[in-house]
């Protein structure tokens, strides 16, 4: 690393919630996705929750631009970037027991996390530096009209069941730095400056002395 070139390293493993199925999954590899819905419980690091934008591109790591709450939502890098929320959780031992990244772009999941965050910030334990142990005992079916039909998704019901001291697996980390958004290019100005007519040119003064040289 003397050259300072990033050489990969370990990626944070992820846990994800499939809103269409209403189920939690621990992703341990491309072909190793484990359903951890039953008994899902985790410590949610709601003190370090990031909001921002992610663009998923096939064959490439996601392109992200996030800011840490309470910072404002950063500007959308491109129209292809979708709104998202991410945070780290530590799974209960029964479903793995390790630290995972939870990221979602599903509106109803972001709503559930937002409501959970409200409950967190209102609790006195948060001010003491504790983190909530969160369970998902149920889901709520949410049916929306898509214009071409109806679609049902399942909003997770997230409940704080207890509080714990911050575990070593969820250390404080540096807040992400949102991507700078390039200034919007605009066509060259055409000109809106009103110009007065040119000043009249006075006739040249007559030559002094009357002598004319040729």
């Amino acid at each position: 690393m003397a050259l300072g070139i990033p050489t990969g390293g370990n990626r944070t493993p992820i846990v994800k919630y499939d809103a269409r199925a209403g189920r939690w999954f621990r992703v341990d590899g491309k072909d190793n996705v484990i359903d951890v819905t039953n008994g899902f419980t985790a410590i949610f690091d709601l003190a370090q929750i990031d909001i921002g934008w992610t663009q998923f591109v096939a064959g490439s790591p996601p392109d992200v631009s996030y800011a840490r709450v309470p910072a404002a939502m950063p500007p959308q890098p491109t129209l292809d970037h979708k709104r998202g929320v991410r945070l780290h959780v530590k799974l209960a031992k029964s479903i793995g027991g390790d630290m995972r990244e939870l990221m979602t772009q599903a509106s109803i999941v972001m709503q559930a996390i937002d409501q959970l965050h409200d409950a967190y910030t209102a609790a006195p334990e948060a001010a003491q530096g504790k983190l909530p142990v969160v369970a998902c005992p149920a889901t709520e079916a949410v049916t929306i009209n898509t214009g071409t039909g109806k679609s049902t998704n399942y909003k997770p019901v997230l409940q704080i069941v207890s509080w714990v001291a911050r575990p070593a697996e969820l250390p404080f980390t540096d807040a992400p730095v949102p991507q700078p958004v390039a200034a919007v290019a605009v066509p060259a100005a055409t000109g809106s400056t009103v110009v007065p007519p040119p000043a009249s040119r006075a006739a040249p003064p007559p030559a002094a002395g009357g002598d004319t040289e040729f």
């Binding site: 066509p187 060259a188 055409t190 000109g191 400056t193 009103v194 110009v195 007065p196």
Partner: peptide, 27 residues
């Protein structure tokens, strides 16, 4: 030379000077 446009309506008028002519020629 200064390139100007004189815009005239029946009741109003204004003369504007062209800016960035190289950009517009490139366009």
């Amino acid at each position: 030379y200064s390139m100007r446009f004189a815009y005239c309506t029946p009741k109003k008028s204004a003369v504007y000077e062209l800016e960035n002519p190289a950009d517009h020629l490139a366009a």
